[in-house]
Design a protein around this nucleic acid. Structure first.
Lengths: 335, 335
DNA sequence: CGCTCGATTGGAATCGATTACACGCAGAAG
DNA sequence: CTTCTGCGTGTAATCGATTCCAATCGAGCG
């Protein structure tokens, strides 16, 4: 591998000078700069980022730890994060926790070992000592989508309260009265929040949310399927199942079809997180759409703010209802 | 940040010794090792991977450059790659080229600058000078899924020939005679190969593939939609559209429905790359399934073989047909 | 004419590890 | 009682950059 020394000797200058032209330092004579530059591309020299990072204490890299890459919501989030980071001159390393706290820790640890400049996390759980420690000891950090209460870290997320109220209104208008929800893990904020918002919205319509209508899932399709099975085994099964994420909604749909039920005639279905595929399912699924791309981009900007010494505030965007056919024929279309 | 020196002085030994225990070097007295270890966790010391890499010339990191993270096929590939790499003690940095050669180059360059140990690529195009150069100058490299002909780099991929023949047989048996294909970019091997295999299979059934039945797409949904539009505008439109990837199939389906056509009664649809969602679309889509996870894992093992100085051979796995309802009912069930 | 000053450039320390080599010491061998 | 061996450990060089500080040089100034 050709190093800065090779460039220096080809150009007949010192390594210090080469480094200067590489870093656009102004104090270099134009003629010298030109000589260095020709040497650089004659040798196809590329600076070693590892060495540079060691010296400068910065890697211009962000870490992103998400709970499940296979979930289209997170895939899209990851993509927007990378786009924005790249636009701002950073790279990103993605760690997929697969909803497992140990894996999440593994990635946080690896990322920290690599001395990434900042960490973007959508926590799978309530926070391991490792992650809490990193936050406390000043690793630039921002939570996105999910967060950990009580930790002093900016949060970029979407609030689904209003959209959930709209959803309940929509369901109520369609005549549904027995509404059930499949919850995410209690350790995630997105899990608990969504149930609460749902319960509140139901109350506003004089409906209640009995315990047997709250299913416990883990954000994976299979758990959605099982929870739905339990609902349908109930003496009085719900007439709508609302899944707290898209994968569980798919599982729910599987179970409904496996039992020969029709959607929405026999049971209705709605999901949190809208994804392109929901348009193509049979029937198209009513969902609450988060501004995913905006979430990712905002989170990156916030993180870079703290990385570069500015301060960042939490940001809450809002989600919106996208009514389709899985809850019955719609009366009005929400745009 | 606490460094190896801090550990050394707390433990009352030299940095060399600390480094030795960290790297399981045998020549350390047990008692010394214990002292170092306590110091290590009293200080919560973690070695700086950047410094270590500089010295050892290895990062234990693999780069993965894929054409489109949002395509579920690549998402799954990326996931399996990361899983296997982690199991073997490597990290992976994913670069999303978004089917754009310049972006692909950007990622290759960044990855190379970071001195990753090896590169896994699913090329978007015929190969930029940068990538070709990297291959020639000995950067450990393996192609996965797509490859670049004429470059001496192992390839791990799935061969769809047999599955495509099965597909054509299936279509023929269902009475379809006018079959069209939406191709990927000609610059990708997966693009050109699939058309060829398709044409060959047609010939075996005495059918031909007229030029107007070969649509040009770019592996994105929208191009699938447009190509389908052109097919349907033909005086004699095809009765089956076979899309060379899942996203284009989705676009094709959109166009069919937008024109009020029924699938499969009016037009049939099949896709290359099977994804979980195809089970839930209306109708479920017949597809050719690649052993995606196996592809990723095999590619990683091959790459690590070359990274660690062994040699790696190309591997070709095989794809298989998964018949569903988008091409019509099977014969066993209908008249 | 000597000196100060700004513009360029080079020398060398430094970042935080790894590791070749040397050293001290204890027991074995002669 | 030497000398030899090896084990355990420390010293210092090294990886490839960045950057502080000093040196050089010509020009402008008093």
């Amino acid at each position: 591998m050709v190093g800065i020394k090779d460039v220096a000797s080809l150009a007949g200058v010192s390594v210090a000078t080469v480094s200067r032209v590489l870093n656009q330092h102004p104090a270099v004579r134009a003629e010298t700069r030109a000589r260095v530059l020709t040497a650089v591309d004659r040798l196809a020299y590329r600076p070693n980022a590892v060495a540079r990072s060691l010296r400068t204490h910065q890697t211009r890299t962000l870490g992103l730890v998400i709970s499940d890459v296979l979930n289209p919501f997170f895939t899209e989030l990851a993509r927007s994060v990378e786009d924005e980071a790249r636009a701002l001159g950073y790279s990103v390393i993605i760690g997929n926790a697969d909803e497992q706290p140990e894996l999440q820790d593994h990635h946080v640890r690896t990322l920290l070992d690599r001395r990434i400049d900042g960490l973007l996390v959508s926590p799978t759980d309530g926070g391991s000592p490792l992650m809490l420690g990193a936050a406390r000891t000043g690793t630039p950090m921002v939570f996105v989508d999910r967060w950990i209460p009580g930790v002093d870290v900016p949060v970029v997320r979407a609030d689904g309260r209003d959209a959930i109220r709209d959803l309940v209104a929509h369901l109520h208008a369609l005549g549904h009265r027995r509404l059930a929800i499949i919850n995410g893990p209690a350790a995630t904020t997105t899990g608990s929040e969504r149930v609460e918002a749902f319960r509140d919205a139901l109350h506003a319509y004089g409906l209640s949310l009995p315990a047997e209508y709250v299913g416990q899932g883990d954000f994976q399709a299979d758990s959605g399927r099982k929870a739905t099975g339990r609902f349908l085994d109930l003496p009085r099964p719900p007439d709508v199942v609302f899944a707290a994420d898209n994968l569980m909604a798919l599982g729910a749909m599987d179970e409904m079809y496996a039992r020969g039920l029709r959607v929405p005639e026999d049971v209705a279905l709605a999901a949190f997180d809208d994804i392109p595929w929901f348009v193509h399912t049979d029937p198209p699924i009513t969902a609450i759409a988060q501004p995913t791309g905006e979430l990712g981009r905002t989170a990156v900007r916030a993180l870079i703010d703290v990385v570069e010494g500015r301060t960042a505030a939490s940001v809450t965007l809002s989600a919106r209802l996208v009514a389709r056919r899985s809850c019955g024929e719609r009366r009005e279309q929400t745009s």
